[in-house]
């Protein structure tokens, strides 16, 4: 699946790094606890989270995650967007809640990355 597919499936708005939406995604991880995300390494994962702060982008950076999706229509501020642009991480915002967003991706064939 591509990051662009994630965007379509989740009716998401792309906030930055639209030029990178052709990146391949193999798994997904939904969590508001960054240490839980950091505990499970999987290749090319998308991170879904309801948490909005710079550490979400840094967690994705450390994990080589190409994309972060904020659930429930949450939008990151300028500091967060600037950081994501610098690190080349696609940020998206979906109107769906966490459970629904994860379910939609799972239903479309994406598997879990969190253990």
């Amino acid at each position: 699946m591509l990051v662009s597919d994630v965007q379509k499936i989740l009716d998401a708005e792309c906030i930055c790094c639209e030029n990178l939406i052709d990146t391949e995604i193999n798994s997904a991880c939904g969590s508001d606890m960054m240490s839980d995300v950091l505990a499970y390494v999987k290749d090319q994962s998308v991170l879904l989270t309801g948490l909005v702060n710079p550490q979400v982008v840094r967690t994705a950076e450390m994990m080589d995650m190409p994309c972060v999706v904020f659930v429930r229509g949450k939008k990151p501020d300028e500091t967060i967007v600037a950081l994501a642009k610098d690190r080349g991480i696609v940020l998206m915002s979906t109107p769906h809640r966490m459970f629904t967003a994860c379910g939609l991706l799972y239903q479309n064939g994406l598997k879990g990355g969190c253990g």
Binding site: S35, L38, A39, T49
Partner: peptide, 17 residues
């Protein structure tokens, strides 16, 4: 701290791992 996404008690175990 927990509201910021940390404080799950996984940091030091992660470092070890």
């Amino acid at each position: 701290i927990r509201a910021l996404g940390f404080g799950a008690g996984m940091g030091l175990p992660n470092i070890k791992k």
